[in-house]
Design a protein around this nucleic acid. Sequence first.
DNA 1: TTGTATGCGTTATCAA
DNA 2: TTGATAACGCATACAA
Lengths: 342, 342
Amino acid sequence: MAKKQVTFADIAEYTGFSKTTISRYFNHPDSLTLENQEKIAKALDELGYRKNKLARVLANGKSEFVGIIVPNLYLHYYSEMLTQLLRSYSDYHYKFLVFVSDGGPEKEMQYLDELMAYKIEGLIVLSHTLSSEKLASYNIPVIAIEREAEHICSVTTDNYMGGMQATSLLIRNQCDVLIHINVHVPENIPAYDRIRAFEETCREYHVPYELNLNVSGDSYQELFEQMRVIFQDIDSKYSGQKKGIFLSNDTYANMFLNLIFQKYNCLPDEYQIIGFDDSPIAAESIIPITTVGQQIDVIAQTTMELLVEQMNEMKKRKPAPLQKPIHKKITPVLIRRQTTGD
Amino acid sequence: MAKKQVTFADIAEYTGFSKTTISRYFNHPDSLTLENQEKIAKALDELGYRKNKLARVLANGKSEFVGIIVPNLYLHYYSEMLTQLLRSYSDYHYKFLVFVSDGGPEKEMQYLDELMAYKIEGLIVLSHTLSSEKLASYNIPVIAIEREAEHICSVTTDNYMGGMQATSLLIRNQCDVLIHINVHVPENIPAYDRIRAFEETCREYHVPYELNLNVSGDSYQELFEQMRVIFQDIDSKYSGQKKGIFLSNDTYANMFLNLIFQKYNCLPDEYQIIGFDDSPIAAESIIPITTVGQQIDVIAQTTMELLVEQMNEMKKRKPAPLQKPIHKKITPVLIRRQTTGD
DNA sequence: TTGTATGCGTTATCAA
DNA sequence: TTGATAACGCATACAA
């Protein structure tokens, strides 16, 4: 606030119109004669007017703010999703208030308080910290992305399809035994379907399989050492058999691949590897890794469409909020590279 | 705006106090008796009051908004920087309006317009799209991170130091010839100092060197194919000599390493490799890559300190904006891993 | 310690 | 097509 702002009052005085007319110049320009429009435009320029959208929000209640809560940006999946969401500014002109959720439920509720205090019109949640029940209680449109969403709308990858695509490929490629490596995944989050799909597909085709859901750890090093143990176990246990390894993400897949290389200096025919996410690492690894690519752009776009629709609904005189949450699934794409034969 | 908001007027009526007193409860609670504080707290709770910070901004002029313009979140450097900046919410309670700048100068000026309309108190710019002169003209505190910043404050990695650390290590490790691989970097941006440092250090120690600043390309594949040509050239040209390769980022370093592996199945003693950034890929590669780590957390923290100081200055009755921009350099850290001997 | 009056910059309502 | 006036919700002189 170096110098006082130029306001509608100033423009009004300068042009001889009323404040109302200046306001109309912005909101209903057609109701002014072209001549007067130009007069005002000229005055705006000469006085160096700058909009104050905060005052506008106070007057009409439309903040054009959307809140985003994301767990981190370390994972490519999240940073890419955030990018795509932010990009939607071009289409909808919603502004995004972004919080990284890394402090547990209390912190996250504080973020939500802050967002509500700034009168966000809608919310996009990627973190898993708060229950969908809690989120629903804020009474604004909420879309969950790839998380538990019993009481709110959601957009997720079709994880079952993804898991099935990966598993089927390994089976088609004549693997003797399939192994799925993952962290422990609660049954109520979408990614659990990858495990279900793996298991059910293996059974359907009567292919021997093993589930290893014990991965855990905070640092890359910890995870890598765990993976080393898992690798050694598998490598000796199934020696001589053709092994199809389906890992829950590309980082794990890359670790596994590196471990194989450390031992064999190449990817032997008796190993096939598939990751998940189509992260950069899958392309940058020592051998490009076959992976299941989530259509992040489509997910982001679907999210915004769903959200905008509901935010528009809320602006009507008699809003009719959704009775039941809408859940959308986006089909992933199998990206065949060099770790699954040629 | 489902039901009408609960406002200070409602609380005032309910408690028998005036609106002013309710306002004071939030802004100068000490001026109320404990008893009355509790009364008001109770009323707030019972009526389900929710703050409206937008109204507050209109009244006192402090939006607590900071704008961020970032080129992309694809590069780990940017996503990590954004994370660290967003994290500073815990310390300063500034809210961040984030834009991804991918549409050229016109788009970016549109973003700035929008940010100004929301009365941001300060701006953090990581994109290179607009000149520092243009940015300075907005008359709000601006901090540039790792970019041209003649007319505005900036925080950058000490690129010269980083380049020198990398080059020195290769020299200490008895390399016969040093090669620096980079894109073409304009001289006025901070990263140019890496090249300067490389060249000057090589000269100082009378070590033969080569600069290759021809890397360019949009996709990973394009870049990789270019890198293949560069590798083959170097591999034959300096056959038998111990080569120290300093690459401008870890992605390039990883490509180079993979190319070496494709040919030799290992990292021969006659190759030493150093990247830059300490991105995840440097740790996840087939052999962990030695790299120069930027202290992103320190950069973010320094940025916020600098910005907050100036934003506070602007709130004084007689603000004294900086006469000359302040430029801070943050020392990087050499991270020795397995691509530079043991 | 508390209240009154006014302002912040815009939009909405109602008239003209 | 234009204008006067009252919101919007909160903060701050100034008084008491």
